[in-house]
Design a protein around this nucleic acid. Structure first.
Length: 298
RNA sequence: UCAUUUCAUAACGG
């Protein structure tokens, strides 16, 4: 059962819902983890309807099931609906509270986010990070800084949030400063800095970090590839693509989209046809490629 | 083995 659930989750996380559903239907036994994983698979791929159907058919709804649904509504912009479930559910845990907090935060309802934050029975580092992220993503740097400074526990995510905020605000020196000062870096730290350099046109600095990085993951590779592709250096971009130890649908999309945007729709189409699986972004990239290059009918 | 916060891709919106 654990193996089946793991496979189900793996499909879900890579966006292969058809395969996930097929597996789910063939499972000899299912537990609540299976049902929750299936509901999550739908929800994370924008199919709230099916997600809800799975939730409604689940033999037993756990706190995770409810939390999954709240997340699904929130990501779909239905914050009121999310709140209704939140108020209605039998018990909540810290994750449930964090989900509701993030929902308001991402909806830029800082007051309600803060309200939840103050009311929750227990806070963890994710709760703090969610508040920090809310301010950061809306360019409210001084508020973000206050939250950051008030935090008694920080993890690499906390630092990464603030680092990205400064970089996106054009304060590369402050971003670099955080990068150098932080006690512990994870892969996302390096990736954030690489992305910041790339967005700032500092391709050489980006590459230097990429080369120094020991924990390179698919995000690092894709970010570096995109950096070259945006400069129309397809030779280097392609060579990175070929070298990449793993690719996911985002890596493929990035390259397809780059060719499309630089005026090579036929190259884009070739890659598109080679992709193991397409998502909404893949299709919209191709549509945009043809539209922008005068092939409306394609 | 399932749910929440940060980093890579399209469109949308500014």
């Amino acid at each position: 059962l654990v193996s089946w659930n793991s496979m189900l989750t793996a499909y879900a996380q890579s966006g292969r819902i058809q395969e996930a559903k097929c597996l789910f239907d063939r499972m000899p036994h299912k537990d609540s983890i299976s049902w929750n994983a299936m509901a999550t698979a739908y929800a994370q791929n924008g199919n709230l309807q099916e997600g809800k159907r799975v939730f409604d058919s689940s033999p037993n709804q756990t706190v995770v099931s409810w939390t999954v649904m709240i997340t699904a509504y929130a990501h779909n912009g239905q914050i009121e609906e999310a709140r209704k479930l939140f108020d209605k559910m039998p018990q909540k845990n810290v994750v449930t509270w964090n989900v509701m907090l993030s929902a308001y935060a991402q909806n830029t309802d800082f007051a309600e986010a803060k309200n939840i934050f103050d009311k929750m029975p227990k806070r963890d580092v994710v709760s703090w990070n969610a508040m920090l992220s809310a301010y950061s993503q809306n360019g409210l740097l001084s508020q973000a800084r206050s939250v950051f400074d008030a935090m008694t526990i920080k993890d690499p995510v906390s630092w990464n949030i603030l680092l990205t905020a400064y970089a996106q605000n054009g304060q590369m020196d402050e971003a670099e400063n955080l990068f150098n000062r932080m006690p512990e870096k994870d892969a996302a730290t390096w990736n954030a800095m690489i992305g910041a350099y790339a967005a700032n046109g500092q391709l050489h600095e980006a590459r230097e970090l990429f080369d120094r990085m020991t924990q390179r993951n698919v995000v690092s590779w894709t970010a570096m590839m995109t950096a070259y592709a945006e400069k129309a250096d397809f030779k280097e971009a392609m060579s990175i693509f070929i070298e990449m130890p793993q690719r996911n649908v985002v890596s493929w999309n990035a390259l397809v989209s780059a060719y499309a945007q630089k005026g090579f729709p036929e190259e884009a189409k070739k890659l598109f046809d080679l992709m193991p699986h397409h998502d909404v972004s893949s299709w919209t990239s191709m549509v945009a490629a043809y539209a922008q290059n005068g092939h409306i009918d394609q």
